[in-house]
């Protein structure tokens, strides 16, 4: 599904690479945690999958496509394969829950008849049934993140990537979001999640990738957070 072949990334004007010589393979339907201290390159890893950045050397292949060969006009097609969730939710403040989720389909040209069918389904799936007409500022942080997950998932992407989705939430609310991501993973969607939350990683027992100063220092199936080498 996702494969990195000797990928290094050095941002322009930086001396130290943000990622160095990273090789790995993520299969369809996997659930992967990406951990590591601040500045270790986790978000860079995610941006390479989205092709918001290109590797300095090496190849990133997603769904059989070499992203460095992907032309700019095919990029939107690539992004439709991937749903994205961030720490700061990134909802549109003047749109309702329904409109925020529907927005993701509208702007890729899906017809209205399609929206009215799938949007309520997804809102139910994330547990916000009945709150379709609320504005983001009328929701709790956890609920806002559920809207963001609904928006990322409404187009049924093959991959869902989440960069610290529970970073702004209290532990209990975080568990709710984790359960939701787990459910989405069970529908066959590959989930890649960056987190600093030890409890979550230890509890879920999924594959763990640990980065340290841009290097992949651990790739462990059913891993835990505080693993000592």
């Amino acid at each position: 599904m996702i494969s990195f072949e000797n990928v290094s990334k050095t941002y322009p004007g930086q001396e130290r690479p943000a990622l160095r010589n990273m090789s790995l393979e993520i299969e369809r339907g996997e659930f992967v945690f990406v951990i590591g201290s601040s500045g270790s390159g986790k978000s860079t890893f995610m941006r390479l999958i989205l092709r918001e950045e290109r590797p300095t050397t090496g190849r990133v292949i997603v769904a059989g496509k070499d992203l460095s060969r992907l032309s700019n006009w095919k990029l939107p097609q690539h992004r439709r394969l991937i749903g994205t969730v961030f720490q700061d939710f990134r909802l549109l403040p003047n749109k309702t829950v329904f409109q925020n989720v529907a927005f993701a389909l509208e702007v890729i040209g899906k017809p209205k008849s399609h929206l009215v069918k799938v949007v309520p389904e997804v809102i139910d799936l994330v547990g916000l049934g009945g709150k379709e007409d609320r504005l983001p500022n009328e929701l709790s942080g956890g609920e806002q993140q559920r809207v963001a997950v609904a928006r990322a998932f409404v187009n049924r992407p093959m991959v869902l990537i989440a960069d610290e989705p529970t970073g702004n939430l209290d532990p209990e609310t975080s568990v709710g979001i984790m359960k939701l991501l787990d459910r989405i993973n069970r529908t066959g969607t590959t989930v890649v999640m960056v987190t600093h939350d030890q409890a979550i990683v230890n509890q879920m027992r999924k594959r763990v990738l640990e980065l340290d100063q841009g290097a992949l220092v651990r790739d462990q199936a059913r891993g835990v957070y505080g693993y000592v080498r």
Binding site: W73, P76, R79, R90, V107, I108, G109, R151
Partner: peptide, 17 residues
């Protein structure tokens, strides 16, 4: 930029954006 950022992420075409 908020709207266009989301549009880019969900794969709206450049033309549409």
């Amino acid at each position: 930029r908020r709207e266009t950022g989301i549009m880019r992420l969900v794969g709206a075409s450049n033309f549409y954006i």
